[in-house]
């Protein structure tokens, strides 16, 4: 990690980058970042520990260690990626390693919302398309240009129509994925709603 990490800020509509493929279903957040690395009070040093157990097991042959994948920023995965624990450390570790967008067959719910909340768009493609990309990556490098507005990913000889939840897409195009300030705009509504809740009234102790 010689280059200083810069988190995404504000609205964006394009992501260009080299793809890295990680084959496997149900890859859980314990595998993305084992629990021992959660003993920290900031996210700064997580990038180097991403997939630590899997990488040690594969002794340099894990996709995140291969020389050819250096500098990749678009992660290609299979189904139910990010299942398990709600630890935001998982997408934070991926982001700090260099991942800016993820394309997969499907994502676990909490992992998906964590990605959106920190500015990593997650797109889905059918199983066959993912397979095609992963096979392509077995042979040569793939650079994709992702256009969020059009929901497409293009390379010289490939084009995919990506799927992304409309709400997530709008959040990136408007910059509202960083939700706090938007939520605080409704301060009065929040206060009224809270005071109206039946259980606020009968839980007086």
């Amino acid at each position: 990690m010689s280059i200083k990490f810069k988190p995404p800020i504000g609205k964006f509509s394009r992501i260009n980058g080299k793809c890295i493929s990680l084959v496997g279903d149900d890859i859980d957040t314990d595998r993305i970042i084992p629990a021992r690395f959660l003993k920290c009070i900031d996210f700064d040093s997580l990038g180097k520990s991403v997939f630590d157990d899997d990488r040690k097991t594969l002794k340099g042959n894990h996709p995140f260690d291969l020389e050819t994948n250096k500098g990749s920023s678009i992660l290609i995965v299979n189904s139910n990626f990010g299942c398990g624990s709600s630890r935001e450390h998982a997408p934070q570790a991926l982001m700090r390693w260099g991942i800016k967008a993820i394309i997969g067959e499907s994502f676990a719910d909490i992992f998906y919302s964590n990605c959106i909340a920190i500015g990593i768009p997650c797109f889905t493609l059918p199983k066959e398309s993912i397979k095609k990309i992963q096979q392509y990556l077995n042979i040569k490098n793939l650079f994709l240009e992702i256009d969020l507005f059009e929901s497409t990913a293009k390379a010289e000889d490939l084009k995919f129509d990506l799927e992304i939840k409309e709400t997530s897409k709008k959040m990136f195009l408007s910059g509202e994925w960083d939700a706090t300030s938007k939520l605080l705009e409704n301060a009065d509504l929040i206060e009224n709603k809270l005071n109206d809740l039946p259980y606020i009234k009968f839980n007086t102790n």
Binding site: S86, E88, P91, S113, T180
Partner: peptide, 21 residues
Amino acid sequence: AFGIGTSQVRDVLASQTIAMN
């Protein structure tokens, strides 16, 4: 009742709300 990530913990602390589908 549901689990949230740290950015949403921040949102709940700051506003007592989150954005969710």
